[in-house]
Structures are given as structure tokens and as C-alpha cells.
């Protein structure tokens, strides 16, 4: 029996809020790590005055994420699995993999970024048009992982901002897809407004 999560009917991936793990009738893990500490107002989009146009724009953006796979290591292989035939990411409009930063709006950093690669990553991020989103995939890209070493960047947020962090080494394809959905939700809510 797999552990099922409680899905909010209003969103694909929403979780039951305001409940400590295990305190509800379900004995599964219901919250994301740390999510229980978050205010419900944050989730509702709180201080943003969301107009219909904005909603439309957000909807369009969130459903046409064109990823630039900045794949360097093991996580890139899992990304290959995700765009492969078994997991079908095109259902969310994110299958148009672009290798030119000018044509992409989602930077997927997959794998270890070492210091030698730092300027390259920064340059690619700078070339991407607004609005641009960044997902850091896997332990190395998010924090350096277990490479506390002389040549490894300790997380790409040293040089570029990150919207979604996906733990795992490497994350499973579904774990990464969850990250993409989470980003979609974030854009839908209008939380990321950088244009």
C-alpha cells in the first residue's frame, strides 16, 4: 500500500494545511517539510491584488514553461528519464526543451555546479528573458550535497536566485515533476512576479 498524500481539490498538489503531521485522521505524512509553520495567508496569494488579466497571464506562463536543461551530472540522466516515454512531462506544457537560453523561461539546474562552471551558469541565467524561473534539482545544485570540497559550489544560490528546490540525489523523475508543478502553482498564484 503506497502512502497517499492528501490532495486539495482546488490544486493539483495542494496539501492539507494547518495540521501537524499525524494529527489528522490520516496517518500519512501530510505536510511538506516545514510547511506546517507557514501561514495560510501566504498560500492564498495574500497581498497581491490579482486581476483577471494577471490571472490569465499567469495561467499562460505556468502552462508553457520551456525548460533549459542545464544538465551537468547524474540529475541530467534523471531529467532524461523525465522527458522520456515513461514519465510524460508534456502534459504540463514543459516538454519543449530549449538549448538556447534566449528561448527558455525555466532554468533547470541539474547536477553539480563546480566553481569552474560558475561563470557559465551566471552567463546563461543573464541571457534568459524575463520572466525567468529557476529550479535547482538535486543535492549538489541546491547545496553542494556531500561535496564539501575545494572545487564545488555550495548551492547555486551563491550566484543566481532559485525559485524551487528539489531535494534528492538524484530526485526521482516524479519528484522533479512535483517540483515543476509546485513552480506552476507558484506562478498561478502570482507569487513570482519578476517581469
Amino acid at each position: 500500500m503506497p502512502i497517499e498524500k492528501i490532495d486539495n481539490p482546488n490544486s493539483i498538489i495542494g496539501r492539507k494545511l494547518n495540521q501537524l503531521p499525524g494529527s489528522g485522521p490520516e496517518k500519512g505524512i501530510q505536510t511538506l517539510p516545514g510547511e506546517s509553520e507557514r501561514d495560510i495567508a501566504d498560500f492564498a496569494g495574500g497581498s497581491y491584488l490579482t486581476t483577471t488579466v494577471d490571472t490569465m497571464v499567469n495561467w499562460a506562463r505556468s502552462n508553457s514553461l520551456w525548460p533549459f536543461p542545464f544538465g551537468t551530472a547524474c540529475c541530467a540522466i534523471e531529467f532524461m528519464s523525465m522527458v522520456g516515454s515513461h514519465y510524460d512531462v508534456s502534459r504540463f506544457g514543459a516538454e519543449v526543451v530549449r538549448f538556447s537560453p534566449r528561448q527558455a523561461d525555466l532554468l533547470l539546474v541539474e547536477g553539480t555546479i563546480v566553481d569552474k562552471m560558475g561563470p557559465v551558469l551566471k552567463k546563461i541565467y543573464d541571457q534568459m528573458p524575463e520572466p525567468r524561473y529557476v529550479i535547482a534539482m538535486g543535492a549538489c545544485a541546491t547545496s553542494g550535497g556531500f561535496y564539501r570540497a575545494y572545487h564545488v559550489m555550495q548551492g547555486i544560490d551563491e550566484i543566481i536566485p532559485v525559485d524551487i528546490w528539489v531535494p534528492g540525489c538524484p530526485p526521482t523523475p516524479d519528484g522533479l515533476m512535483y517540483g515543476i508543478l509546485k513552480l506552476k502553482e507558484k506562478i498561478d498564484r502570482g507569487e513570482i512576479r519578476r517581469s
Partner: peptide
């Protein structure tokens, strides 16, 4: 495996 988060602190 669904662990994606949007803040590093969390």
C-alpha cells in the same frame, strides 16, 4: 519523494 520546496531554510 515529493519534497520540492521554495525556501532553502525550510
Amino acid at each position: 519523494y515529493e519534497m520540492a520546496i521554495d525556501t532553502r531554510a525550510r
